[in-house]
Amino acid sequence: MTDGEREDERDMVAANAKLRLAASRSAETDLVIDDVSMHFDTREGRITAVDGVSFAVERGEFVSIIGPSGCGKSTVFNILGGLIGGYEGTVSVGGEIVTGPHPSVGMVFQEESTFPWRTVIDNVAFPLEVKGVGKVERHEVARRFIDMVGLAGFEQRYPSELSGGMRQRVAIARTLVFEPKILLMDEPFAALDEQTRLLLGDKVLKIQQDLKQTTLLITHNITEAVQLSDRVVIMTFRPGRVKRIVDIRLPRPRDGGVIGSEAFGRYVAEIWNDLREEASRGMAESEAGARKGRG
């Protein structure tokens, strides 16, 4: 593909995204990210992490953002969560422009984020404690969510006594206890093994259906994206742009069984088709970088 063609394709993608945005605004949208770009100044010069990204998430929808490492997924996550500023474009939550962490957005982080000095129940009750909810009441609410993520009986344990998957469930429960309207998750299962990841995916899906939460999942795992999402946003390697948005028309409620279906396989193949080019470009560039660094 020549540069000109790539440019054309990019314009088309951007135009499509805008159209989509305009269409989705009429429906009930919870989260709108409109033409967002973000640059970082590094020693090697200015890097564009995210370039003109636009999409919207409707109320109760489960959307995944998928892309190779270095596509700016985590930057998008931090922008949506209001943790970083200094970007171009606008992000709005329930119609309000985001300027900092929004009270109706809950975040689940990729890295270990449970508080090691707090028991499971005090970890989960943390957001309520900060809000000034009394101990009895916040523990009662926390218990409900601990139960929901399947950790009943572990209330008095410390995170160090739990497995990685259990700790991540504590983090999810801690985010849910706040009852955020919108749930943002940045590769929450990345550090877990495949089986745990699938089981936990099931759990998250079930919770999301129960609470009817608007959910945005950042992932690099295609199976996970297809298993969980209504739509999958595919991003390009640096600079991160929206390459395509795939509608996943698999029946709901879904469980682990959906993975065996023929349609599931078709979606995975379709997304991989789009992703392969980006991933190999990413690999080539990081190898080139390593070679340059060594020389």
Partner: peptide, 28 residues
């Protein structure tokens, strides 16, 4: 760990809450 601080920030903790609830206990 940055992720612990981010958790605090995502709940809009004030500077003093961030210190007493997260930074100090994590550093103890």
């Amino acid at each position: 760990r940055k992720s612990l601080i981010d958790v605090g920030r995502s709940y809009n903790l004030s500077q003093s809450q961030l210190f007493w609830k997260i930074l100090l206990p994590a550093a103890v």
